[in-house]
């Protein structure tokens, strides 16, 4: 039993890792631009398909592919900002609708290019760290966990130690006052989109060898990401990370000890309970919610 708990804990840690990469990006984009990016799950999917295209089909070294996935999806994010969100800046509902449209376009393009069936990604490493007979951690999962810790730490350092980091937080808190300091909203929105999208992209690239890659894989993570954001408090990055960890542990444990459908229900219940007890989320403040 103890071994099963430890193993489930490791599984949950892995789920929390990629979930927080996705949720933090979504929160960052919402904070700076006030736009709910429904296409965020598809950015995750694009990251996975970069691996399918370059690693599975052309055997480009995996590390290089992951880096390319990060940059490529980040650039898609910048393009989204420029082509859609910038033009709909005074119209958050329009931004949301545009992102839903873009989500469908991405799904259609990937389906046309790669087919709707699950894409096969050969394992990057078969190595497994064996703690005991029933406690094992595949190295690919360990990579995801370490990468998430690394990227989130880097993001934290960027936001708290650099002038563009201050600028991003300032425009998330008061866009007009930020403009009065000479901070261009076009610039901060572009940076927020690049970071948010590239984090979703790297999450997709890192998990591609471990999950079923298909054009509609964005769906499941976007629902989870929204639960995480609401639980954590809309607009709070640290809330998103903490809520991702809580959600991943709850979801993974319920999946293991009951089943996946019940786990989804429990996840939504978790969101409901938080909304009833603390409508602003665990870390949210009233004015952002």
């Amino acid at each position: 039993m103890a071994e099963l708990l430890v193993q489930t804990g490791l599984n949950a840690l892995y789920a929390a890792a990629y979930m927080s990469l996705i949720a933090v990006g979504l929160v960052l984009i919402f904070g700076v631009m006030g736009i709910i990016n429904f296409a965020h799950g598809e950015l995750f999917m694009l990251g996975a398909y970069v691996v399918v295209a370059l690693y599975a089909d052309f055997q480009v070294p995996y590390v290089l592919v992951a880096a390319l996935g990060l940059v490529f999806v980040g650039c898609v994010g910048v393009a989204m900002e420029w082509a859609m969100f910038r033009r709909l800046r005074d119209n958050p509902l329009g931004g949301l609708v545009a992102s839903i449209g873009f989500l469908m376009i991405l799904q259609a393009l990937v389906s046309m290019g790669f087919g709707v069936r699950m894409a096969h990604v050969p394992p990057v490493t078969q190595e497994v760290i064996i703690f005991s007979e029933r406690v094992r951690l595949p190295v690919q999962r360990l990579i995801v966990i370490l990468a998430a810790i690394g990227f989130l730490t880097a993001l934290w350092a960027f936001l708290t130690k650099t002038r563009f980091g201050w600028a991003l937080r300032a425009s998330a808190q008061d866009q007009e006052a930020a403009a009065l300091q000479g901070i261009s909203i076009n610039q901060t929105a572009g940076i927020a989109m690049f970071i948010g999208a590239s984090l979703a992209g790297i999450a997709g690239a890192l998990t591609a060898p471990l999950i079923s890659v298909n054009p509609h894989m964005g769906h499941s993570v976007i629902v989870a990401a929204f639960i995480v954001i609401i639980v954590g408090g809309v607009g709070s990055l640290e809330g998103a990370v903490l809520a991702a960890v809580i959600y991943a542990f709850v979801h993974t444990f319920v999946t293991t000890f009951a089943d996946g459908v019940i786990a989804d229900v429990v996840g939504l219940l978790l969101m409901l309970v938080v909304l009833i007890i603390k409508p602003t989320g665990l870390f949210g403040t009233a004015d952002r919610a």
Binding site: R163, W166, A167, Q173, D174, A177, A178, Q181
Partner: peptide, 15 residues
Amino acid sequence: FPDLTVEENLRTGAF
């Protein structure tokens, strides 16, 4: 900026 420190607020002015 409510959630920036005093010093971060000041440095933002010099952006």
